[in-house]
Simulated assay, not measured.
Amino acid sequence: MDTVAVYSDDDATALYDLLNPWDPRRAPCDAFYDELVVAAKSVLDVGCGTGSMLHWSREHGHVGRLVGLDPDRAALARARRRADIEWLEGAAAGASWQAEFDLATMTGHAFQFLVTDDDVRSSLAAIRAALRVGGRFTFETRHPQARAWEAWNPSNASDFTDAVGRALRLWHEVEAVADGVVTFTGTVAEPNGTVLRNDRTSLRFLDVVTLDALLAEAGFEVEARYGDWHRGPVTPASQEIITIARHM
């Protein structure tokens, strides 16, 4: 069965927005980024997805330059519903801006899609080049100590109704955990279990020491580090590694 034809890329991006609404008034993670975006005159959102963060910023009064970059064509098509924001299809490593932004962001754990050291190095180099001296790069990655992937299993399936009224079930299932990389599938199905779509993803779980070494190598200085969205410190119980790094 061609599951992508059954549940298309456009369906999947609409579903993402339904399950992950951007609202700084309700979500501490969104409020954290919104505060930084509001204070920056020019913002590059790397891995912008459907553009929800930049949409919100423009709708709520940001008058500066907002740019979204993402390799997912279907997500960008949804993002481009707003024409007063710049949108570019591509990966972070392929970006060619030079000293044009005050702030770069990677939200929604997008940093974890950079699986190899080479992926991280090339992406950090391009992001640093895009920032003005003193510009900041902020992102989060799940702390490996929290072992978030252990909850990604069919027993934690979610039932919901999508934007066009279809009753659906969503679950994740881990295939492999090796060298800090977790590979898993996400399945969208009908309530009776009929599979409509499978997507396979690999995410890297970096520890603080490795992450900071890669940032320093790329010419970033860690300005702030948090273990939660209320700006608490990283502790043995932290589920997140939230970083604000500055272009030195």
Rank of each mutant, 00 (worst) to 15 (best):
E190G: 01
N153D: 13
F184A: 03
L114H: 03
S122A: 14
W171G: 00
S123L: 09
L196V: 05
S123G: 11
T187W: 08
G135W: 07
T138L: 01
D179L: 08
D119C: 10
I127F: 07
T201K: 07
V133Y: 13
G165V: 01
V174R: 05
A148H: 08
P144F: 05
A146S: 15
V164E: 15
T187R: 11
G135L: 02
F205P: 00
T210E: 14
R128E: 04
P144V: 04
A178I: 03
R121P: 00
V208S: 13
A189M: 08
D118N: 11
W171Q: 02
D162G: 13
R121F: 09
L206P: 00
G186H: 05
F205G: 00
D102V: 04
V195R: 09
V181A: 13
V195L: 09
G180D: 10
T138C: 14
F101Q: 03
V182E: 01
I127S: 00
Q112K: 05
R142E: 07
L103R: 00
V115Y: 01
V177N: 06
D207K: 07
V209Q: 14
A176W: 01
A125T: 14
P191N: 10
L206C: 05
A176N: 14
P191F: 08
R121D: 12
D199I: 07
L211H: 06
A126D: 06
H143I: 01
N192L: 09
A148P: 00
L170W: 12
A176V: 05
E140N: 12
A176D: 15
R204I: 02
F205H: 11
R128W: 08
L203N: 09
R136I: 05
D199G: 08
T161C: 11
H109Y: 09
W152I: 05
V133W: 14
N192K: 11
T210V: 10
R132I: 13
P144L: 01
L211Y: 08
R197K: 11
V177A: 10
T107P: 02
A110T: 15
T141D: 02
R132K: 15
T185P: 00
N198A: 09
Q98S: 15
D162Y: 06
A216S: 13
F205C: 02
A104D: 07
E100C: 13
P154Q: 10
P191I: 05
T185K: 12
D162R: 08
R142P: 00
W171N: 00
V181I: 15
L168F: 10
L196A: 03
P154S: 10
E100S: 15
L168S: 10
H172E: 15
Q98M: 06
A146L: 02
A213C: 08
R142F: 05
H109A: 11
F139K: 04
V208A: 14
R132Q: 14
G180S: 12
R200L: 14
G135D: 03
V174H: 03
R136Y: 05
R121K: 11
W149M: 07
